[in-house]
């Protein structure tokens, strides 16, 4: 049965392909999910034409199982389309519409082509629905996957971006921490910090936690480890940005940030670091 249904679908797709392409394009462009702001009509026409060709070739093989090897080219095209759309900013349903909008013109054709044979018509409509739903699902899965890839890449980039260790002065480096300090980020911070301490020969390192919203035992433990490692490299640490509410919470938790000096603000920490390294900051003139 799948055999005949596949060839019926292929047959319907093969008759006057240009007209089918036109009516499908029409359906896509008039759908409420059309994004003519994100994709040009000629690009859409090109994608749609290519899809119809591949779909016809695959259906000719007789099987309508989209996971079958004959369907690999269709799957590849859909992969390209959904990846592209994920990056262009389409929503998942706008992306799935690419495939689903083919139903309307395809069913219209089946209906007029098989009007005299209701049984075959039912079979063909059912097969075509199953097929297009399968392909639409596949598109959505790939779309999701592409989005996740993007998010993962951004996370990785953010990890690097968000932990710049800056040289503040001769012998003084500083790293402002922002956001959630999980184990992965702590590892990156620690490595960057130690590396910069070596490169600059710094004897003071300031870790500013003004931008860290929650300091719990895990964050505290990460800080303590970082401080201990810096010390082994010959640098003393100052932890700055300890706001009053954080100070209170740390005390209630029972955490001691041993090994490091602590300061309320980054400015206090800089002043202390300069003093310890033997610098003196004086105002040139009284104002």
């Amino acid at each position: 049965m799948a055999q005949t249904a596949g060839s019926t679908v292929a047959e319907i797709l093969g008759a006057d392909p240009q007209a089918l392409l036109d009516s499908w394009l029409q359906a896509q462009l008039s759908a409420p999910t059309a994004r003519t702001d994100l994709i040009t009509e000629s690009e859409l026409r090109q994608q749609s034409g290519e899809f119809l060709n591949l779909l016809r070739n695959a259906a000719r093989g007789g099987s309508l199982d989209v996971q079958a090897p004959e369907w690999s080219q269709v799957r590849e095209l859909l992969a390209r389309v959904s990846r592209g759309r994920a990056l262009q900013g389409f929503s998942p349903s706008e992306t799935a519409t690419f495939v689903l909008s083919l139903k309307q013109p395809l069913f219209a054709r089946l209906r007029s082509g098989l009007a005299g044979d209701p049984e075959r018509l039912m079979d063909a409509v059912w097969s075509a629905t199953t097929l297009l739903d399968g392909l639409a699902l596949y598109t959505t899965e790939l779309f999701q996957q592409s989005r996740e890839d993007v998010i993962y890449r951004q996370q990785q980039e953010l990890l690097e971006l968000s932990t710049p260790v800056v040289k503040l002065w001769e012998g003084v480096v500083a790293v402002p921490l922002i956001g959630t300090l999980d184990s992965a980020r702590t590892q990156v911070v620690m490595e960057n910090l130690l590396q910069r301490i070596v490169e600059t020969g710094a004897s003071m390192a300031i870790i500013d936690i003004t931008g860290v919203p929650t300091v719990d035992t895990l964050v505290a433990q990460h800080l303590i480890k970082t401080v201990a490692a810096a010390r082994l490299m010959g640098a003393e640490c100052i932890i700055s940005g300890i706001r009053p509410q954080i100070a209170q919470t740390i005390v209630h938790l029972g955490v001691e940030l041993h090994g490091a000096s602590t300061k309320a603000t980054l400015a206090d920490a800089i002043a202390m670091a300069l003093r310890v390294t033997g610098w003196k900051v004086v105002r040139a003139e009284k104002r």
Binding site: P213, D216, I246, H252
Partner: peptide
Amino acid sequence: IDQTKLVTAASELAR
């Protein structure tokens, strides 16, 4: 201060 205490306790217990 109480917000911070609550959030920190939640963080500990959730973890």
